[in-house]
Amino acid sequence: MRIQAEHLNYTYNQGSPFAKAALKDVSLTVEEGEFFGIIGHTGSGKSTFVQHLNALLRVPTSLKKYHKKRKSPPSDTVLKVGEFDLTDKKTDFNALRSKVGMVMQYPEYQLFAETVFDDVAFGYKNFAPQKPTKEQVENAVRDALTIVGLDYNEVKDMSPFDLSGGQKRRVAIAGVIVTKPEILVLDEPAAGLDPLGKQEIMELLHRLHASWCKSILIVSHDMDEIAENCTRVAVFSEGEVKYVLPPKELFTHSEELLSLGLDVPLTAKVCLELKKLGIDVKCDFTTEDFLKQTLALAGKGVAK
């Protein structure tokens, strides 16, 4: 499924003295199959944007009314996820949500059931068009827990609250992907985890990308994480999309990014500094390529 947004606006507390524009004329397309990154600091509108993707936030319909009243052409906002038109009130949002999985920040805080099994089964049962058989539920839960790297038989009867932090997060992710969504959106999936936990989550996401979920969208404020994992990145700042580029091209704009108050990956920073010293390292800013290119450059130096 393709995600297509055009001229998307969103204002919190519209009409109150606290009104705050969170999205300003955002246009962004994510193709099927991408591992897409959205970066920006707190309050840049990145979370607001992704919450639109499964209709947790709606395209304001009052805008349509406004245009209708004045007989002006209808608003030019477009928001489509695959076949679903999210500007249309009649869209089946439940069907949409089973196709677009959403993992919120600190998803372990949404666990509620007595057992891991029940918690993971929650979404599956909710989205099933007919009441699923016991076997269907079991299979779905087993698959979900297995793919997130947990031992089904070991954890299924445990209370989710007795697990470790990293395990809880994986159970929470299992609870979202149990419906095998085509698009998986994750808001800060690695926040609060220790280095090893972070690495495991990113590995899990690549595993999912290769198997269940066609597209993955991660929202993050960690440039290194984005640079190492994503095919393309959108940079949000003050409710606007500043750039949409593959990381490699994005970080040639390192200087502008830094002036926007955004971080750039360490490798990009080093390249920037090296350039100032008259050494031009051409690389795609992943750590591996940076090392390769730097060493190659040094090697050439030796050859001279």
Partner: peptide, 12 residues
Amino acid sequence: RIMNAQKARGAN
């Protein structure tokens, strides 16, 4: 936030 999270999991 929690309501949104559960809505995303199909809660009604």
